[in-house]
Design a protein around this nucleic acid. Structure first.
Lengths: 224, 224
DNA sequence: TGTATCGGATACACCGGTGTATCGAAAGTT
DNA sequence: AACTTTCGATACACCGGTGTATCCGATACA
């Protein structure tokens, strides 16, 4: 009766089913990112996953449900990544910083911050998806609540990482860590946006360039 | 034959037609903002403007065309507003600052910055529309190019205003004005976003609170 | 290996939105 | 005031996407 019992007795959901769900979600993430929730059709999704619409309706009730499931999954992955890096932080930090002993100038902090913000797989698709989600969150208060919770968690996590990084480098940020995280995230997103719009082959690199340029200006000011 | 001739002979476009175009655009702005480009139907728009679909197809070819026309109009209005304030800047500045003589602390700068960012009509609808446009701009390189041009112009305009404001208060920002404008815009938008998601009756005020709170932290760091 | 169940494919009826072709009324012209 | 033109309303044919009802093959289990 209880969910735990059920999860133990049966394989929760036949491995097969779980696999197709996974494939559908992967496909959906791409499609949603590329064309948006509304323009996306169930068929586009199933087609990309090499299924027919039958598979979809067997696994999900509505497109929106799938979208939300995706939002949650994405957030979890993202959080896990951050948590992973916070675990390795003293491993990463010396590597990036290493050579120079003693206090480090703001210049060395840039790459560290960037490395955390750029660690997702395809940032381009991710930003598109995220933007779509945000829009939905602004229009639907239910989704809005969810979004804010997720964002808050992410900001806190990222904030603590960044604080640690500042610390390791001998700088002390003046803003509290969550707001600091916010500012940095915003500048990164805005750089990525611009890079996407400019087009060209390597969006990732272009975004990196833009971001670093702005970041270095900021960092000098964000800490003392 | 030439457009100027045509514009002089006929009233360019019968005043009547122009009026319905205007009404359609006003309605479209609301609808697009509320439900997004894709979810918006031609009928929703015409209905809100008290027309039938006939009117629409007589004035525009596609929904997208209308959307882009709207984007341009919005940007122009916004620029005009900014230009207007830059004209009045020495009129506004003393009013806001007035009382205290000599150098002003960062605290006094907050309301000034805020006043410029909050001068649009309905910021809520505006942000929604803007987000929609941005998304489109990331997906369609044509639109992207246009968007970047507009944004650049706006940033420059806003940047010069802000620089002047910092100046008037006796602070000198360390970032160049365009990047400064960017950071401030981003923080404002992010505050507005959050306020929208939180819901409640007065989104504008909530956004203002959030923004000021973050802004004050920032300003101290953005200038010396 | 035979049988039951599960999961995805296929087929179909339905609906909402689009765009066009036609019409009629109001505004402009002489 | 007749007549012409312009503009928006109405009607219709069409299409794409949805969701459901049914079917069939694969997988699991005895």
């Amino acid at each position: 009766m209880s969910t735990t019992t059920e999860a133990e007795n049966k394989p929760a959901e036949s491995a097969r089913r779980q696999k197709t769900r996974e494939r559908l979600m992967d496909a959906a993430f791409e499609v949603f990112s590329e064309v948006g929730i509304h323009a996306a059709t169930v068929e586009m999704i199933t087609e990309r996953a090499d299924f027919t619409r039958g598979a979809f309706y067997s696994n999900f009730d509505t497109k929106e449900e799938l979208f939300l499931a995706l939002a949650e999954r994405g957030n979890n992955e993202r959080l896990a990544l951050l948590r992973g890096s916070v675990a390795n932080i003293d491993l990463i930090m010396p590597t990036l910083v290493g050579s120079t002993e003693g206090k480090l100038s703001a210049t060395e902090l840039g790459p560290i911050v960037a490395s955390f913000l750029e660690q997702q797989g395809d940032n381009r698709l991710w930003l598109l998806f995220q933007s779509e989600l945000r829009l939905l969150a602004m229009r639907d208060s239910e989704v809005g609540k969810l979004y804010l919770e997720q964002k808050n968690a992410a900001d806190k996590e990222f904030g603590s990482i960044i604080s640690a990084a500042f610390d390791a480098v001998g700088l002390t940020p003046a803003l509290n860590s969550v707001e600091l995280a916010n500012v940095l995230m915003n500048t990164y997103e805005s750089a990525l946006q611009e890079a996407i719009m400019r087009g060209g082959n390597s969006v990732q690199e272009a975004a990196h360039q833009l971001f670093m340029q702005r970041l270095l200006g900021l960092i000098g000011q964000l800490a003392s």
